[in-house]
Design a protein around this nucleic acid. Structure first.
Lengths: 101, 101
DNA sequence: GCGTTTAATCAGGATGTGCTGATGTCAGAA
DNA sequence: TTCTGACATCAGCACATCCTGATTAAACGC
């Protein structure tokens, strides 16, 4: 798998981070919004946002003393494309079976 | 996120399991093939295959004393669809920003 | 200036996950 | 039946990940 897709997967494979992504898919939100929407502590959220940031899934948008986060749809699209292509490949090769020695 | 997509993600978010999925996208393979293709121990592979099985990503196909595994493309497709839809939603709502109190 | 608020970073403890060797089970060959 | 090979399961250890409280930095209002 492409190492970028691997990073995206790791970042998304956490319940709280997945929830953050879903929330950000509807609108841009600042950390204080996410605190009240998820019920998680500010420190915890900040850690998860860093993971999402480093994976390229979200982008911070500083606004005064607030920091809004926006979702990067390209990241999700590349992930979707990758697995759609893999599924196609699997469908073509469904019957193939390597013989056992 | 749908809890099924969450399970798929967790299962895929491991380097060795991702590699197994890629290999199985090309052809059906038995455990002994996967052992030599990945270099992992049989015990280790069996554990990972169980995770993939429980997530609905692969399906065992017993053949005598061998066990072939086949990839279930529907699982990958549902994942791809989920994130493609989320990306679309994010693109539509890209400008929205919830005001801070 | 000073105090408050937002949010990032750090160090710790708890929990989860992956890898291992040993063991159990089942199918086929001798 | 007995033996061998393929595969699953189990218990233990090592490591990674998540959550937390405390601290720090920066932006705003007074």
């Amino acid at each position: 798998m492409s190492e970028t897709a691997d990073g995206l997967l790791r970042a998304l494979a956490d319940p709280l981070r997945a929830r953050i992504i879903e929330l950000l898919a509807g609108e841009q939100l600042c950390t204080c919004h996410l605190v009240e929407l998820t019920g998680a502590r500010q420190t915890n959220l900040s850690n998860h946002l860093r993971v999402l940031r480093e994976a390229g899934l979200v982008e911070p948008q500083p606004a005064g003393r607030y920091t809004f986060y926006r979702l990067r749809p390209e990241a999700l699209t590349s992930l979707a494309d990758h697995y759609a292509a893999l599924a196609d490949r699997a469908r073509s090769a469904a019957q193939l079976r390597r013989p056992c020695a």
